[in-house]
């Protein structure tokens, strides 16, 4: 666990839909409360049954609201258990730790128009973004896909606060959201997606085909992207003069931390670039979304949280 955490108390839990609960988290020491910008998230640390669950959740606060942090979580039985623990174990009054707010999904400063596209629980960062854009008088539209009206968290809230900007799509009612919403937008439009990996890939590809430059396409993933099977490899650490083995089911970062190496990290899903380390020798199988294609070609670095050695059972040398 990172040393820089904030102690919070769960002040209020609300049901936002049959599967989504929101949690209001109030810092114990409010004198140092930091505000949070649109698109920020926090890492939460929840302990249950000897397991420590580390999860990243977007903050849904209006950036003007201070005094608490608010997150919304969808209960997912397929996940590693963090969301189930939040839904089934966490009670009002509980104390826990969260990270400081981090922002890897900020709004573009120069955009002339913002198109926000959410699938399911991917709505969360856009609640804060919509509040910020509205307050600043910026032009935006919000497209939100859910299975049905009943399963659509924050439906009535969005309908009442942003009726002109919000468009809902309910697949059970035969109304599917398509990538068309990005087509024929004015020059200077930026698009933002949040949802499952498959949706993000589909929308990113479509956006490029419509002519959006990469700098105008923004997205945030919940889980590391799937880059195919993971193979074991070996790592030599130049500064600490160690050799460690990374098995097929573990990340390089996990192994570094396990061996007591002070390796930097933050998001753990290849999105923020915090864990970048210089590579002295060996070829890298880049699995992050942080480095540009050009950087992957030209720079000798690796994002240790997701990337691996290119060659099965091969070896890389790190400046650590």
């Amino acid at each position: 666990m990172s040393a820089n955490t904030i102690d919070v108390v769960v002040e209020e839990i609300r049901n936002e839909s049959p599967q989504v609960k929101s949690f209001k988290l109030k810092p114990s020491d409010t004198s140092r409360l930091l505000r949070c910008g649109a698109g920020s998230h926090v890492k939460t640390y929840v302990q249950f049954d000897q397991n420590l669950f580390e999860n990243n959740y977007s903050l849904i606060n209006d950036p003007d609201q201070s005094g608490y942090y608010q997150i919304a979580i969808r209960r997912s039985d397929e996940s590693k258990g963090g969301s189930v623990c939040w839904h089934d174990q966490v009670k009002e009054g509980d104390q826990l730790k969260i990270s400081y707010p981090k922002n890897h999904f900020s709004l573009s400063f120069s955009a002339k128009h913002h198109v926000l596209i959410a699938a399911g629980i991917g709505i969360t960062p856009f609640i804060a973004m919509a509040a910020d854009l509205k307050k600043k008088g910026k032009s935006f539209e919000l497209h939100y896909a859910a299975r049905s009206n009943d399963l659509c968290a924050f439906h009535s809230f969005l309908n009442s606060v942003y009726p002109d900007e919000t468009q809902f799509y309910f697949s059970k009612q035969g109304n599917r959201m398509t990538t068309d919403v990005m087509n024929n937008q004015p020059i200077g439009t930026h698009v933002y997606f949040c949802g499952p990996e498959k949706m993000i890939n589909e929308y990113a590809e479509a956006a490029r085909s419509y002519g959006y430059p990469d700098s105008n396409i923004h997205f945030e993933l919940f889980v590391p992207p799937d880059f195919g099977p993971m193979e074991p490899f070996q790592v030599k650490l130049n500064k600490s003069n160690k050799i460690v083995e990374v098995p097929e089911d573990k990340s390089l970062l996990d192994i570094l931390l396990k061996h007591g190496i002070d390796a930097p990290y933050s998001c753990k899903i290849g999105g923020c670039g915090s864990c970048q380390v210089d590579v002295l020798e060996g070829e890298v199988d880049h699995r992050d979304l942080f480095l540009t294609d050009k950087e992957k070609e030209e720079k000798s670095v690796i994002c240790t949280c997701v990337s691996r050695a290119k060659v099965k059972n091969g070896s890389i040398v790190l400046d650590l």
Partner: peptide, 11 residues
Amino acid sequence: RDFLLRMEAGE
């Protein structure tokens, strides 16, 4: 610059 871009609140 890259280091600054990756700096986080609280650190």
